[in-house]
Amino acid sequence: MGALLEIRNLRKDFAFGSLLSRLRITAVDDVSFHVMPAEIFALAGESGCGKTTTARLILGFEEPTAGSILHGANRKGRRRKREKVWFTQGVQAIFQNPFETFNPLRRVECYFFETVHNYGLSSGRKGAETLIDETLKAVGLSFREVSGRYPSEFSGGQLQRVSIARALLTKPSLLLADEPVSMVDASLRMSIVNLFKRLRDEFDVSVIYITHDLATAYYVCDRIAVMFRGNVVEMGGVESVLMSPRHPYTKLLRASIPEADPSKRWKARISLTDIEHEEYLRRGCRFAGRCPEVMDVCRETVPPDVDVDGVQVKCFLYDEATMRTKGREVAADVG
């Protein structure tokens, strides 16, 4: 298949509480997807859906409770413990807050030189500087601009570019970007987002773009997986999933995005849930408590993943067998 990264049935449980009362929350539950080379893949959802935990699992900062994460050539089952994927598999990461990404008391170039030194990318100071300068040019900066400066001397947008440059130094094949532009001003976001597109087109870098901002995800990504409370509820091409959403949660999400167009104001009122943490502990479909089209089976059993025109939807409404027993038609394709 040639996938760069394959996630199979990934599961991560967190346990809270003391010896007497332990609460187990499944932050990531039976998640499977794959990322192809030179592709921007969005992992989208609201807070608490498990997207950041999935990223940490891929990076190896957390150990999965079950399931496997397979990188490129290494397709033989589970990774060895504590494998440093940034060294062995060419995976790097970019974080949300550029001012937290760097130590405010150190010059940013220190991280560049350390990376060069630790990965053995170049020998000698001169060689390192040339390499760093090249990489910075790729993001629209230069070594001269960056040299000798502390993080507080940059703007958010510039610093995020610096962060991307640091990640690019090791020529990764996969970049995990966790909300890379949510803390960058609206007027500067596009330049960074366009940068991701360039990386995909010119350098064959794949990006896992983690975000809750569906509008930007629509603009920049090729494929998208929508997550809700640890499950992937809908996954497919971004045009398909976001322009004609099928899963009731995706529909609700899409409809709730305030569009930058006064003629498209919200008409209907929605009611909000107060029972967030209960949703994690549900037996069946996690969205059953709020779904406008909920059926009894939804509360009891976890829905299967159904393929609807190339989009994978985790919902009984699209499952032929279930709908037939109810004497109903499978839900119409157009959301």
Partner: peptide
Amino acid sequence: SLPKFGDKSLKQS
């Protein structure tokens, strides 16, 4: 520069 659904044209900051 605001991203809009249905519009995949290039946006500039």
